[in-house]
Write a protein that binds this DNA or RNA. Structure first.
Lengths: 150, 150
DNA sequence: TATTGTTATACTCTATAACTATA
DNA sequence: TATAGTTATAGAGTATAACAATA
């Protein structure tokens, strides 16, 4: 669709599918995920468990079902993620008094501590990911993606 | 890092990890991949086999190793992708005369035909993916991603 | 009957290791 | 020795189905 926005590999050679924005999104995701996963490894967190912890910190207490909906994670996968966060002592699985089916998720003090460290790591990881962009360009990219990432 | 670019879910509620561009990239990728996968299904192509076919069309004849490097696909995965494209009659696996170890990949007339249809589908899929953006904004997003997607 | 959480299971995707044929 | 391609295998990651507890 665009002709002056050609994507080229590190070697400077053009690549046909680089014409499609979706290909660039996939490629950016591959890189961003690898960078972030490596950066989080020392904390024994993954991008997924980090995101879950951030949502629990923000919206807790909330149910596992609600967490899954917000992050587009299947409920069976949520079980595994919360298992891990609970085992590490970062999240408390309580029972909701009003509806005793739901597990009420709440971040612990240790969870807040590690979340703070992980957020710094996330900032560093993004600095590397977006190193080629100016501050204004980073904001533009963020704002545009927010309107595509439904 | 930014405070005025908040990501909100379809319900209009903010989501903590939406502060990180990497989260938005992951989310955009999830949506773009699902849209494109569904759109390509009638042609029995996947986003990966489509990208492979596009590269073979552009750069063929080329080896499986070269294809894998360009698309960041493991060589064992390349085997499966090329198997599929060959079985469908879209790609010819020849032998390189100079180096008889390499499989020289070349698109067939049927491959060019289906690639053309798939490109139209890709355009339609992108129109849906980027529906909320103006033409200028789409170009901006594309150009910015090209500088992040190494 | 429907929903929350859980387990067991299967399926997809990708990576690792070992092999062959060539160089 | 090294590389291209292949196969078999194993490992993530995720989804499906069936279940218990509760609504």
């Amino acid at each position: 669709m665009t002709i002056d926005n050609e994507f080229t590999t590190a070697d400077g050679q053009p690549l046909a599918p680089g014409r499609w924005t979706g290909f660039l999104i996939a490629r950016a995701h591959l890189r961003a995920h690898a960078l972030f996963q490596d950066a989080l490894a020392p904390l024994a967190l993954t991008p997924k468990s980090f995101g879950s912890l951030a949502v629990i910190a923000e919206q807790g207490p909330l149910s596992q079902a609600a967490l899954g909906e917000l992050l587009r994670i299947d409920r069976t996968t949520v079980v595994a993620v919360v298992d891990e966060l609970e085992r590490a002592g970062y999240v408390h699985r309580g029972r909701d008094a009003a509806d005793r089916r739901v597990h009420s998720l709440l971040i612990t003090p240790a969870g807040r501590q590690v979340l703070g460290e992980a957020e710094q790591i996330a900032d560093h990881s993004h600095a590397e990911l977006l190193a080629d962009l100016s501050a204004d360009e980073r904001d533009q990219l963020h704002a545009l993606l927010a309107r595509v990432a439904h």
